[in-house]
């Protein structure tokens, strides 16, 4: 295998390992739940992206054909990580906070976990 490709694969593997570890370490280290939400949803997702890039380069160097499985997994993870983070934040807010703990939204309607959605979407009002 070409030395440069090997270097690229090893570099992305090491970097992604560090990112994954930092994500989980942040999950352990940060002070409260809303802060802890940041570490795994960003750093760990990036780390997995690095692993998938390394795997893509490795199998490209091995077989000579580009495999798109990794791209599928990356796309799926990058699409779902913000959604699950949003869900976890909403679950935390409904369980532990009341509407008085939060700053005002400055709109006609309140925070999403506590208030019903407006009848007409805000951009339709003109």
């Amino acid at each position: 295998m070409n030395f440069l490709i090997e270097l690229l694969i090893s570099f992305s593997l090491v970097v992604s390992g560090i990112f994954g570890f930092v994500g989980s370490f942040g999950l352990l280290k940060l002070r409260n739940t809303m802060q802890r939400l940041h570490a795994p949803t960003k750093a760990t997702t990036l780390g997995v992206g690095g692993v998938l890039i390394a795997s893509m380069a490795y199998f490209f160097a091995q077989t000579g054909s580009l495999s798109i499985h990794e791209l599928l997994i990356t796309l799926f993870l990058f699409l779902t990580a913000p959604i699950s983070a949003n869900f976890i934040a909403k679950a935390f807010m409904t369980r532990n906070l009341s509407q008085d703990d939060l700053p005002p939204t400055g709109r006609d309607y309140g925070w999403a976990p506590f208030d019903d959605p407006p009848d007409t979407p805000p951009d339709a009002r003109g």
Binding site: G20, V51, I88, A91, R95
Partner: peptide, 26 residues
């Protein structure tokens, strides 16, 4: 301390397991 922490940790665990599976595949 909170249930949301546990869900978050489970979600992170799933992502880490994905990474380990891909590493094992390599």
């Amino acid at each position: 301390p909170d249930l949301a922490d546990r869900i978050l940790a489970l979600d992170t665990m799933v992502i880490n397991v994905i990474a380990i599976l891909v590493l094992y595949g390599i």
